[in-house]
Every structure is written in C-alpha cells, then in structure tokens.
Lab assay of single mutants.
Amino acid sequence: QWIQSKREDIVNQMTEACLNQSLDALLSRDLIMKEDYELVSTKPTRTSKVRQLLDTTDIQGEEFAKVIVQKLKDNKQMGLQ
C-alpha cells in the first residue's frame, strides 16, 4: 500500500491543516469512528497525530486510505515520491 511505503515522508510532511481536512472528510463519510477521531485529535503533537491516523488506516482499509491520499493531493503534498 502506497501510504505504508511513504509513511515516514507523510509523518514528516503532512500539515496540521491537511490532517484536519482528512479527519473531517473521514468523519463526514462515516469512515472513522468517533473514538478513533478522538484518539488522533487528542495526541499532543502533529507527528503523533499523523502516526495515529496512519495506524488507523492500516485497520480501516482502502476507502479510508483513498480519502487521505486525496487530501494530500488537494494540499499539494504529493511530493512524497
């Protein structure tokens, strides 16, 4: 999976804004449970939030991952090649 192969780059480069947009999009599509949303959003640092989101992606699967990839594209953060 692309996200896993780029995990380190995503953790380093995903902005707080992109992270929040991803969470909002996942929530609005019922792809993330409120508990998982809280787990991510209550982490103390941006990098720990991104790591938690990516860990959740492993469990949730492809549809979940597609939303995150789309948000990275929207925010022009796909220089993660």
Rank of each mutant, 00 (worst) to 15 (best):
Q1H: 07
W2F: 02
W2H: 03
I3T: 02
I3A: 03
Q4R: 13
Q4C: 01
R7M: 00
R7T: 02
E8N: 02
D9I: 15
D9K: 06
D9P: 01
D9L: 11
I10H: 01
I10L: 09
I10D: 04
I10E: 02
I10P: 03
V11Y: 01
V11Q: 02
N12Y: 07
N12E: 15
N12H: 12
N12A: 15
Q13T: 11
Q13H: 06
Q13L: 05
Q13M: 08
T15Q: 12
E16V: 09
E16L: 09
A17D: 14
A17S: 12
A17I: 04
A17W: 06
A17E: 15
L19F: 01
L19D: 03
L19G: 05
L19C: 01
L19R: 06
N20L: 12
N20E: 04
Q21S: 12
S22N: 02
S22C: 13
S22P: 03
S22M: 04
S22Q: 01
L23H: 11
L23N: 09
L23R: 02
L23G: 03
L23W: 00
D24R: 11
D24V: 07
D24S: 11
D24T: 09
A25I: 08
A25H: 10
A25M: 10
L26F: 00
L26R: 07
L26Q: 09
L26P: 07
S28N: 00
S28C: 09
R29N: 13
R29T: 06
R29I: 01
D30Q: 13
D30G: 15
D30F: 00
L31R: 02
L31G: 01
L31K: 04
L31S: 04
L31W: 00
L31N: 02
L31Q: 03
I32N: 00
I32M: 11
I32K: 00
I32W: 06
I32E: 02
I32T: 04
M33N: 12
K34A: 12
K34E: 14
K34F: 11
K34V: 10
K34I: 08
E35H: 14
E35R: 13
E35M: 02
E35F: 02
D36R: 02
D36A: 09
D36G: 05
D36Y: 04
D36C: 01
D36K: 05
Y37S: 05
Y37F: 08
Y37K: 07
Y37D: 06
E38L: 13
E38P: 00
E38I: 14
L39H: 12
L39F: 07
S41T: 14
S41K: 15
S41D: 06
S41I: 15
T42Y: 07
K43C: 10
K43Y: 00
P44T: 09
P44S: 09
P44F: 15
P44W: 06
P44A: 11
T45K: 00
R46D: 10
R46M: 07
T47Y: 04
T47P: 10
T47E: 15
S48K: 10
S48I: 00
K49Y: 03
K49R: 09
K49L: 01
K49I: 04
V50M: 02
V50P: 05
V50I: 05
R51F: 00
R51E: 09
R51K: 13
R51W: 01
Q52R: 04
L53Y: 01
L53I: 05
L53Q: 04
L53P: 07
L54Y: 01
L54D: 06
L54T: 00
D55W: 06
D55N: 08
D55I: 11
T56Y: 14
T57N: 03
T57H: 09
T57L: 14
D58R: 11
D58Y: 10
D58N: 12
D58G: 15
D58H: 14
I59L: 15
Q60R: 13
Q60M: 11
Q60S: 10
G61H: 13
G61A: 07
G61S: 11
E62M: 05
E62V: 01
E62G: 05
E62A: 05
E62Q: 00
E62R: 01
E63P: 07
E63L: 03
F64I: 09
F64K: 04
F64M: 13
F64Q: 11
F64W: 07
A65F: 00
A65S: 06
A65V: 00
K66N: 04
K66T: 11
K66G: 11
K66M: 11
K66V: 02
K66F: 00
V67G: 03
V67E: 09
V67W: 00
I68A: 08
V69T: 10
V69P: 05
Q70N: 01
Q70V: 02
Q70D: 10
K71H: 15
K71V: 15
L72Q: 06
L72H: 02
K73E: 14
K73V: 11
K73N: 11
K73D: 09
K73T: 14
K73L: 13
D74S: 08
D74P: 05
D74G: 08
D74L: 08
D74N: 08
D74Q: 10
N75V: 07
N75G: 10
K76Q: 13
K76Y: 09
K76N: 10
Q77H: 12
G79C: 13
